[in-house]
Structure formats: structure tokens, C-alpha cells
Simulated assay, not measured.
Amino acid sequence: MTTQFKLTMLQISNTVTLADWEIELNAIRSMGSGGQNVNKVSSAIHLRFDIRRSTLPAIYKERLLASNDSRISKEGVVVIKAQSHRTQEKNREDALTRLADLIRSVMVVPKTRRATKPTRSSQIKRVDNKKKQGQKKSLRGKPIL
């Protein structure tokens, strides 16, 4: 038996929020050891978030769909399973936090790399250091008679 949850809004940033209809939360039974509590109580949370149907800005949708995250299916649905806590409420908060963190991670614009060259003096120092190390190691060998 799974339980549906109602949620108000998930605040991602000052300008981006997710409405309650965009996130599907279901309570399921946890896996693993735990005895009677695991067998009786549905404390794990299964979160589903459809990227294509969401109201996220287009650039975030593109970046999420292009990201190589195992939690995003080929159909563009984020699936998060939270079962590390004993209570349903904490697992629900954990799942929502993980979704918000995933969306925030694609909001950061990666810096463009500028090609740089090492200075002439640093190149000379590096080669001199390599020569010194080579001489030091050659002295450690067996003496030639």
C-alpha cells in the first residue's frame, strides 16, 4: 500500500519554485534489516519529478536532461528513493532536499577555461629539478669497478 502526499511549494531559489502538482511522493516500505518496523511501516519515500512537464526555466530543463545523472531516466523523470531515516517525515524532507540540490547543481554556470602557458623561467626550473633528481638517483646505483 502506498500513500500519496500533498505538498505546498518547494523553494529552489529566489526565482524558481516547484508547485505541488509537479512532484509525486509515495510512501513505500523500506528495504533491508529492521525487523517488525520495516515489515509493518511504510517509512521510505519514492519521489518522482517529470522534468519535461515541470515549470522550470528552459535552460534548467536542458541542463538536467543533458546531465549524466543515474537518477534521471531516459524519459526525463527524476526518481529519488529516500529510506535512510526511520520516520516518513524525515525521509520526505531528505528526498525533497536531494531534488532541490540536484536542480541547484545545474543552476551553477560552469566557468569557461582560458588556456594558459607556463612561463619560460618555470619551464627551466622544472627541467633543472628533473635533472637534479636524475643525478641523485643515478648515484644510488651500484658502483662500477
Rank of each mutant, 00 (worst) to 15 (best):
V77Y: 01
V77N: 07
R92H: 10
F49C: 02
I144H: 12
N129W: 11
S105Y: 06
L65T: 00
Y60E: 14
R120Y: 15
T55C: 15
D101A: 10
K125L: 14
H46D: 13
I124K: 09
A19T: 14
K61C: 01
I144S: 11
L99C: 06
K132R: 14
L7Y: 05
Q4N: 13
R29N: 00
R53G: 12
L7A: 04
V79G: 07
V38D: 05
Q123H: 11
A66Q: 15
R63E: 08
L10I: 06
L96N: 01
S33G: 13
Q36M: 10
Q88E: 09
I28W: 00
V79M: 07
K111D: 08
S122G: 03
W21H: 12
R53S: 15
I72R: 03
R53V: 11
S43L: 00
D20L: 04
D101F: 02
K6S: 14
T3Q: 15
E75C: 05
R86Q: 10
T87W: 09
D69P: 03
R86F: 08
R120V: 15
G34D: 03
I23D: 02
S138W: 09
S138Q: 13
R63I: 06
S43A: 08
V78H: 07
S13M: 00
I144N: 10
R126C: 07
A95S: 04
E89R: 13
V79A: 05
A95Y: 03
T15K: 06
K142N: 09
R29H: 02
N91L: 08
A27S: 06
N39G: 09
V109R: 09
S30H: 02
R98K: 10
Q133W: 10
S122W: 07
K136T: 09
M107C: 09
